Computed example of a mutant assay.
Amino acid sequence: MANKETIVVTGASGQLGRLVLKELVARAPQARIVGVLRNPAKAQDLAALGVELRAGDYEDPASLSAAFAGADKVLLISSNELGKRTPQHLNVIAAAKAAGVKLLAYTSVLHADDSALNLAGEHRETEAALRASGLPFVLLRNGWYTENYTAGAKAAVDHGAVLGSAGQGKIASAARADYAAAAAAVLTSTEDQAGKVYELAGDTAYTLADYAAELARQSGRPVVYKDLPETDYRGILESVGLPAGLAALLAESDVKASKGALFGDGATLHRLIGRPTTPLAASVAAALA
């Protein structure tokens, strides 16, 4: 890789963005690593690592044009603003094309082309826009993050129950750090990545009953899985403070998980990062620490 190559990561202050940037700094010390976020003052920890911070907003095309100046590669981390993702992503794609970017990587969703998940729709629209753009691009179709469940690990132990609507559906999740390592591997690869599609999932799948059993094993306290109708689960998520849209999405995703929507083959992610994906037990241990 050329010493002067510039790699830009959007969503730099987000949980995934921060991890990708740290991986890039470690993997490509001679490259110019740029993080784009709305408020660079919120990521001075990244600046201390040598990441160049630039202001950029998915809804402000002019800011994106300035943020992508000189970029060789751009990682578009999908927006977290459900319902607004497609137009925001179109702004990024247009700015990247105008900047002459040689490769745009996009964090899509596992099996986006035929996924039953409601959230897959905006990913399909973004993928279609990338194909129509003429830009060289690579798709990182990320599966479920284990943290989507372990974020509530302590509460589940306290209440003695994991709640959900996933039935006996198998979930092939991986830790956020695993997906970050994969993105960094693709962005720093010496192989031509244009046109590649990576279906990324964890090595080992589990049910939410398995997850509850792991919580019980590590905490030494009884924890069971309680399967609920979608409307009941959505209502509980709203009652603990989740926005209605996010609660609906999580509940719907659980129901689709019961039908296999969150299951995938971990071989591709494992190969990209050069190690096994983070086991469920390790993610649970970190969440309970």
Rank of each mutant, 00 (worst) to 15 (best):
A180Q: 02
L130W: 02
A180P: 06
E238Y: 03
Y149R: 13
Y106M: 06
R275S: 09
G134E: 12
V74T: 05
L76H: 09
A98W: 06
Y198K: 01
K226E: 14
S283W: 02
G169D: 05
G17D: 03
R217V: 08
L64E: 07
R27E: 11
L64S: 08
R176K: 14
G143H: 04
A181T: 00
S253E: 12
L117V: 02
A281Q: 13
T146G: 06
E191S: 14
E147G: 09
G56L: 07
A116N: 10
I236M: 13
T6M: 12
P222N: 11
S65P: 10
V240L: 12
A180S: 03
K4R: 15
D72K: 00
L208G: 08
A205D: 11
L288V: 10
A289T: 15
T86G: 13
S189R: 01
V162R: 06
P243C: 10
A71R: 04
G235N: 10
K226R: 15
Y179E: 01
L187A: 06
A116V: 14
L200S: 02
Y198T: 05
Y58K: 13
G202V: 00
A201D: 03
T107H: 03
Y106C: 03
A161C: 14
L103P: 04
A166L: 09
L272V: 00
I236R: 13
G100E: 08
E127P: 03
V186E: 02
A181N: 09
A43E: 05
A172T: 08
Q15I: 10
A96M: 07
L272A: 04
E147W: 03
N39K: 15
K154R: 15
P279R: 07
A41G: 11
A175W: 00
R32C: 12
G56M: 10
A155K: 14
S165N: 10
L46V: 07
A248C: 11
L228I: 06
A209S: 13
R141F: 08
I171R: 06
L269K: 02
N91D: 06
L110C: 12
S283Y: 02
V157P: 04
A120R: 07
P229R: 10
G160A: 11
F137M: 04
A261K: 01
A180W: 00
E125W: 08
A66F: 03
D57F: 06
A71Q: 02
